[in-house]
């Protein structure tokens, strides 16, 4: 046990679950809220995302042209954005994934390896999935898997005095469309949990039998029970900063193509 390490219960967790927002604004909110927690202007926060439109979200260090079929994305009206964390590309359509971010003080992962920090930040999700009847476990470095295949991928970044941990879980993904917009080599197919001819990748839908909203509600209940959680909302200043950052950075092709 690291003496400088804080526990979940040492913090007054807040929940933000706003209406649907544009992909570039989501990217910006992650940067702004991480910095707000780092500066101690906002309590540690769990944010559940709702998507206003379809998106491909690529990792900070991924090559845009190697990962995204630009023609396919344009044909389907899909916005391509780059996030501030590493990791792999995600294909998002409203309602097909469950995405959340945790903005935590760096003290929560003090002395932990990266591998330990990933599992630590998602221990509540593993419990929630077990309660939903899914035999989920953490697969290092940054995946949540079940016997039937991958369920979710996580990414972390440490910025100043805070750690950003965000996760996208597959609820009900149109795998055929995903293959038209992401360039996924054969090597990576198994990593995405896709059987060779799968039409849908729907572990949360098929393995819980519950609507997406019910799965989210159960997850939030589990977080609240384990760690404490109070409803909150984005502040006007946070929204204004995120909107400015979305326009200046995340909607700018120079950022999306920073690794061409």
């Amino acid at each position: 046990m690291n003496a400088a390490r804080s526990t979940w219960r040492d913090h007054a967790w807040r929940l933000i679950h706003a209406d649907a927002q544009a992909p570039a604004l989501h990217m910006a909110l992650d940067e702004v809220l991480t910095d707000e927690v780092a500066a101690d202007r906002r309590p540690p926060t769990l944010r559940v995302w709702e998507w206003a439109g379809p998106a491909v979200v690529i990792g900070r260090f991924q090559s845009l042209r190697n990962e995204v079929d630009a023609d396919g994305a344009a044909r389907h009206g899909i916005e391509v954005v780059r996030r501030i964390t590493g990791g792999g590309a995600m294909f998002i359509e409203p309602g097909n994934t469950i995405t959340y971010s945790i903005y935590a003080p760096l003290s929560m992962v003090a002395g932990m390896s990266f591998q330990e920090a990933y599992a630590h930040m998602d221990a509540w999700v593993i419990e929630a999935l077990h309660a939903l009847g899914i035999d989920a476990r953490y697969q290092p470095l940054n995946d949540i898997t079940a016997p039937a295949g991958k369920i979710a991928g996580a990414a972390q970044a440490r910025r100043g005095g805070a750690v950003l941990h965000h996760v996208t879980m597959a609820y009900d993904i149109d795998a055929a469309k995903m293959m038209q917009v992401l360039r996924i080599g054969r090597e990576k197919l198994s990593d995405k949990g896709i059987a060779s001819a799968a039409k849908r990748v729907d572990p949360l839908r098929s393995q819980t039998g519950l609507p997406r909203e019910a799965v989210i509600a159960r997850m939030i209940d589990t977080f609240r029970h384990r760690h404490g959680l109070r409803a909150d909302a984005l502040r006007a200043g946070e929204i204004a900063r995120a909107e400015a950052l979305a326009a200046a950075k995340f909607a700018d092709p120079a950022w999306t193509g920073v690794v061409p």
């Binding site: 090559s63 590309a89 970044a157 690794v259």
Partner: peptide, 15 residues
Amino acid sequence: VQVSGDFFLEPEQAL
């Protein structure tokens, strides 16, 4: 030279 991938790297400028 352009290195890329789905790895993690901090600080990001190290790429």
